[in-house]
Design a protein around this nucleic acid. Structure first.
Length: 208
DNA sequence: TACATGATGCCCT
DNA sequence: GGGCATCATGTAG
């Protein structure tokens, strides 16, 4: 288990998006440790990418994208959901990777609770169909990891002091599939979505 | 100050 | 497979 270095993110978001597959997102909470393996990402470029929040220039909202690499850019979307991105490239140059889906690894019951999946229905951690509902999709993933803009935006993901970190757990990715990004209209044709081939926890369409 | 819109997910069919 | 909830943000006026 090694914490990723800021330098890991100090390069083109397309390379970071691919390299992040198989890494772990770890959250320390008062109740316990939550962790999930990254199985799906999307790259957002600074320029020549109309879908990127940074495309229109720096604002109060997207300032993190223009800051140093390895920091959390969290934004609220559709009035319901948060999405977690990691800033890339050197200070002053925008770019990021959107984390889209996790395979739950530890603290799974707490993650399910954070998603509101407990209660009437009983939790069955052996069923893939149940586990997929926990963090397969950017909004779901953020909710399961208890990520909010207020709590996490601007936070370093590569600091020993941070309660939200990206670490290398030694998992080897066999094969990566690349497709266009999901849920956008502008620049939708660009092949900037990456996921672990045949992994069941990937969200949305699994074929181009 | 108003308004259009979106890097989504849930629920129903 | 499709409709819809729900609101922060940015841009126009």
């Amino acid at each position: 288990m090694t914490l990723l270095k800021a330098e890991f993110f100090n390069r083109d978001p397309r390379r970071v998006a691919r390299a992040l597959l198989g890494k772990l997102l770890v959250r320390k909470t008062p109740r316990g440790i939550l962790a999930g393996r990254i199985v799906e990402t999307e790259a957002y470029l600074g320029k020549n990418d109309d879908a990127a929040h940074a495309a229109a220039g720096k604002t109060a909202r997207n300032a993190v994208l223009f800051g140093p690499p390895g920091h959390a850019y969290v934004y609220f979307i559709y009035g319901n959901h948060y999405c977690l991105n990691v800033s890339c490239l050197p200070d002053g140059v925008p770019g990021c990777v959107l984390l889209r889906a996790l395979e739950p690894v530890s603290g799974i019951e707490q993650m399910a609770e954070a998603r509101g999946l407990d209660g009437a229905k009983q939790i069955d951690l052996r069923k893939i169909s149940f586990l997929k509902k926990i963090s397969s999709g950017p909004g779901r993933m953020a909710e399961a990891m208890e990520i909010t803009r207020e709590r996490d935006n601007g936070k370093s993901l590569v600091s020993e002091r941070s309660d939200l970190r990206l670490v290398d757990g030694g998992y080897r990715v066999r094969r990566v599939t690349v497709t266009p990004r999901i849920g956008i209209v502008k620049s939708a044709e660009l092949p900037l979505r990456y996921f672990i081939a045949r992994n069941p926890f990937v969200s949305g369409r699994r074929v181009p």
